[in-house]
Amino acid sequence: MRRSSRFVLPAVLAVIGLALVLWLTTRPAAPTASARPGVPVRVVSVAERDVPRFTTAIGSVLSLHSVEIRPQVEGVLTQVLVKEGQWVKTGDLLATLDDRAIRASLEQARAQLGQSQAQLQVAGVDLKRYKLLSTDNGVSRQTLDQQQALYNQLQATVKGNQAAIANAQVQLSYTQIRSPVTGRVGIRNVDEGNFLRVADTQGLFSVTQIDPIAVEFALPQQMLPTLQGLLRAPVPAVVQAYLDADGQSTLLAEGHLTLIDNQVSATTGTVRVKAEFANAQARLWPGQLVTVRLRTAVDNNALVVPPPVVQRGIDGHFVYRLDGDTVTSIPVKVLHQDSGLSIIAGVKAGDRLILDGQSRLRPGARVEVTPDAPPGTDVAEHGSQP
């Protein structure tokens, strides 16, 4: 019995030792610091391109030429030759008035002119005869002077008759109402058959020029030097008109800066500005409110990144640049920033900067780039929106 226990104990110890060796060789290795996963981030490359700068305001569309059609003589409206909403050109006949009374006055003035011309002709013959007779005292000097005065009087009468004819012709032309401008006819206020007076407060209709057209808007007085420089520039400053609807901005037309008002408003501290637009498709309409973007400058070869790339620290702005699988903090200077992009200095075109996940980073941190990119980060193709 004592002999058997002497052999069993070493056998048990051998089995335990073998099991311990097997466990040590097969257990999983403890994770090391270098095997820890990196911080997931998204990156974007620095783009280099020309970036225009804009200032935004609310503007009102104005016609460059709008006319209220009113009669210049009294008479019955006999005919309206245009329809509401019709496009007309300068000189087109719009309406006619009853002209019979004016034509009668014109014929009467012509008859009086003929009578005066006949009297003048007789007086001229007599004056010539009296001058010949006066050389040998055939008529008195007084008679010659009286004939000369009569001749002069009849000359003045002829001129008066000619002026009366011209006046009647002008009055007759007023019975044909023609368009003074190329534009669009508005809503008609008076129908045919009504008697029109010059003193009537309401006109027949309006004719409004649509193309070209203007937009007026106001900007702070601090921008006055910039505006003056834009007007002096050889190339007109670009102005864009947008329509804001349903949360979206639609470009209606692109024009150029034409005018700065001659004074600043003392109550608002703003100056009125006017821009002119080609409007062949009539996308701009008089009285319409639009969002105006005035291009004030262009940054050539600017380094552009989305706004979330730039971080603010105690010492100023900085960005995280991707170097291999780690990041480096790079101080930058923000030259311009809006809702769509930031123009920075301190990096190079093509540098890969951290776009998302900066809150978990520090210089030298290991990162893991995720393949997906958020929408709207392609600043190389899209600029800021109004």
Rank of each mutant, 00 (worst) to 15 (best):
V264Q: 05
I177E: 09
G203W: 02
L144Y: 00
Y174S: 08
F318S: 00
S249G: 12
L341Y: 00
A14L: 12
D211A: 05
Q155G: 11
L230I: 13
T32P: 05
T270S: 12
T143I: 09
S339D: 07
N300Y: 12
Q72F: 11
G183V: 05
P28R: 07
T157I: 14
K348W: 03
L257K: 06
V12A: 10
A349R: 06
G350L: 04
A164S: 02
W23A: 15
D246W: 08
S45E: 08
Q337A: 06
S60L: 14
L150R: 09
W23K: 12
L172T: 07
N137V: 12
V80M: 10
G91P: 05
L322G: 03
G316E: 01
D50C: 05
Q288S: 10
V8K: 10
P374H: 14
R110M: 09
P71I: 02
E381Y: 10
Q146E: 09
L231T: 06
A297S: 04
P31H: 15
P386N: 14
H382M: 13
N262F: 14
R352S: 10
S5W: 15
Q288V: 12
G316D: 01
H65L: 12
Q147I: 03
L106G: 02
A163G: 01
K83H: 13
A241G: 11
S140E: 02
H382A: 13
Q121W: 11
V51S: 01
R321E: 02
V238Y: 09
D99H: 05
A14P: 13
I344Y: 00
V292K: 04
T78W: 06
Q240F: 01
T377E: 04
P52Q: 02
D211W: 02
I344D: 00
A278L: 11
R27E: 08
D244G: 13
D338G: 04
V61Q: 04
A29N: 13
V39L: 03
F217M: 07
V207E: 03
A233Q: 10
Q248W: 13
E192Y: 01
K274A: 11
V73I: 10
A266R: 15
D92S: 12
Q79C: 13
P52W: 01
E84G: 09
I314A: 01
V139A: 15
M1W: 15
R188M: 14
L94N: 10
